[in-house]
């Protein structure tokens, strides 16, 4: 089993994800430069956090034109699992693999803290090991994490049971307290919190392990 971690110019959580996967969970991991188109031999792909292309224009707006995405969209169509964390979530919405958009936090501040998250749906493989309403504690670190979508999109997310995680106390003004969503097939998860920063008890908790473990089923 091998996981690919995409590296853009400006990614800064790529090594954290590598450390969490290999060091904490013993899962083989390979970095993928954003210009590669070869995803052969990979079981799942992570788009890590950071500031791809300096967040120029809009977060994720330029990264989504990276050469890797043609292969990644095909990978998703074949049912491959893709996890977008923070900036990775922003890229997935810009790419259209997930609906909606991430906008500037309601109170303008960059928020870096631990938050409590409710498992809103355990339908997808990412959280099927947990029960609905269970609370996970994960760190967030973002300036633009306020999830926005149209009323119709929100209804569809609810009808499809695609809201994976929601904040118990909304830190950024996200619509419906949304912290993470899946696509309707469930194989793509985007979330603002950082599971890779919660995989070792010595740095404050291991609630992130369940999500990273789900990369390999």
């Amino acid at each position: 089993m091998t996981i690919g971690v995409v590296v853009f110019p400006g990614s800064n959580c790529d090594r954290d994800v590598h450390w969490a996967l290999e060091g904490c969970l013993g899962i083989s991991t390979r970095f993928l430069w954003h210009e590669t188109t070869d995803l052969s031999g990979l079981d799942a792909v992570v788009l890590p956090g950071g500031f791809s292309y300096g967040d120029y224009l809009r977060c994720g707006a330029i990264a989504r034109f990276a050469p890797i995405f043609k292969s990644l969209v095909e990978f998703v169509d074949r049912g491959g699992r893709v996890l977008g964390i923070c900036n990775g979530f922003q890229v997935l919405t810009e790419l259209g693999l997930l609906p909606g958009a991430l906008t500037r936090n309601r109170d303008l501040s960059f928020i870096c803290e631990n938050v409590a998250l409710r498992v809103t749906s355990s339908r997808s493989p990412w959280l099927q090991a947990r029960s609905c309403e269970e609370v996970l504690n994960l760190p967030i670190a973002h300036g633009e994490g306020r999830y926005q979508c149209s009323k119709d999109t929100l209804l569809k997310l609810q009808d499809d049971d695609s809201i994976a995680l929601s904040y118990t106390t909304n830190p950024n003004g996200s619509i419906a307290d949304i912290a993470g969503i899946t696509n309707s097939s469930g194989n793509v998860l985007g979330l603002m919190p950082h599971p890779e920063r919660a995989c070792d008890p010595q740095i404050g908790g291991i609630d992130g392990r369940v999500i990273l473990q789900a990369l390999i089923g």
């Binding site: 224009l57 809009r58 707006a61 034109f65 919405t93 810009e94 609906p99 909606g100 958009a101 906008t103 926005q148 979508c149 149209s150």
Partner: peptide, 8 residues
């Protein structure tokens, strides 16, 4: 497709 995101 690039300069604006029609969602927002």
């Amino acid at each position: 497709r690039l300069l604006a995101n029609p969602v927002i």
